[in-house]
Design a protein around this nucleic acid. Structure first.
Lengths: 108, 108
DNA sequence: TTATCATTTCAATTATATTTGAAATATAAT
DNA sequence: ATTATATTTCAAATATAATTGAAATGATAA
């Protein structure tokens, strides 16, 4: 992941509705969730939610697949991992304080 | 770190100038860097840079200390670590793919 | 093939963020 | 005291992002 991609990914995650979408999809797991269900769950209008889903898709943080007339969205863990990696290595030079926050039980 | 703090931190890091500031301060190390030097380094006007430094400070991503007529800024690794932790645990539920990207050599 | 459902797209509005340059503040030097 | 340096603050202008509601698209069912 390069700098511009990281900047866009940070922008995508800096919006409350979009962060909710990501969390929804993490909860939903590998089956994913349809656009309509996501909209209902995060409490947004269809067009509003579609706008946010596009933003997350364009950044590769989620992916989509058409299934009949629904569109199913799924979280892309690898891409979020790439962002974490960018933050740790490219941005913070592998600093041990930051890296220690990746351990489950480490008081961060 | 709570959700609102994470949202603000993502917003802070989603700007090119501000991300440059953070990288500058990582390079500078524990001695930190004065506002003026940061401005010159990232190629921004004093007032513009001050605006971005405020944004990063308010989010706790950097800290400042007055030294005579200069103000020295330093990166707050712990806070960036907290954000990484939020992304890994609160947002992604400790997903192993994301967590594996914290390892230095793991192809992320 | 007409109607319905799920979603996206678009243009207009509203809201938020950033830049700009001048003025204000704070500290130090002459 | 006056001047110079370092930084911030402020208001105005500009740029970017988000919301809204109506219309368009795509897929299925009657």
């Amino acid at each position: 992941m390069n700098e511009d991609q990281a900047l866009s990914a940070f922008a995508a995650l800096s919006n409350k509705s979009r962060l909710s979408v990501v969390r929804c999809l993490v909860q939903a797991g590998p089956e994913g969730m349809t656009a309509g269900d996501i909209a209902r769950r995060v409490g947004g209008s269809p067009s509003q939610t579609s706008f946010h889903l596009s933003s997350l898709s364009e950044n590769g943080l989620i992916s989509s697949e058409r299934q009949a007339r629904r569109i199913i969205y799924r979280v892309e863990y690898q891409r979020i991992g790439d962002l974490v990696h960018f933050l740790l290595e490219d941005c913070c030079g592998g600093n041990p304080i930051v890296r220690s926050c990746c351990e489950p039980r480490q008081g961060c």
